[in-house]
């Protein structure tokens, strides 16, 4: 899309705070993110609190009758969504580390996450 067509580009952030599979929040936000990619906005994804579990490697929810959508996070690169941020404190509190993540993401502190949120035009949290 050229400059004439593209219009205003806003900084969007989708903030994920819930673990996957127990509720539908994580999947719904992911679908919103995929749709948002069509609008050529500056999309950021944040994972904090229990949301860090959405990026956990090795998810196998067949046993609880839920579709495994975690591989879809690996498709985001193809949608030009590459700004993924994971909060360091949230990982540590839950006994997780960067090695547990199934996609590359920038690990940032809670303080930096807060500052980054403050720079956004639109923040959607679930």
């Amino acid at each position: 899309m050229d400059e004439m067509e593209s219009g205003i580009v806003k900084k969007f952030m989708f903030v994920n705070r819930k673990p996957p599979h127990g509720t539908v929040y994580a999947l719904e936000v992911l679908e919103m993110v995929l749709i948002s990619a069509a609008f050529d906005q500056d999309v950021h994804l944040a994972f904090l609190d229990d949301g860090v579990f959405q990026l956990k490697k090795g998810q196998a929810p067949a046993g609880i009758g839920v579709k495994n959508f975690s591989p879809t996070f690996r498709a985001l690169e193809g949608y030009d969504i590459e700004k993924l941020f994971v909060e360091a404190e949230s990982l540590a509190e839950r006994g997780l580390s960067e090695d547990d993540l199934l996609v590359p993401a920038e690990i940032i502190s809670r303080a930096d996450m807060g500052r980054l949120m403050g720079e956004m035009d639109v923040v959607v949290t679930a």
């Binding site: 996957p20 599979h21 956990k56 090795g58 998810q59 196998a60 929810p61 046993g63 609880i64 975690s70």
Partner: peptide, 14 residues
């Protein structure tokens, strides 16, 4: 519950 651990990628060893 094991199936809920597996769903979230948590190894029983952890």
């Amino acid at each position: 519950l094991g199936p809920d651990l597996a769903a979230r990628g948590i190894d029983p060893a952890q």
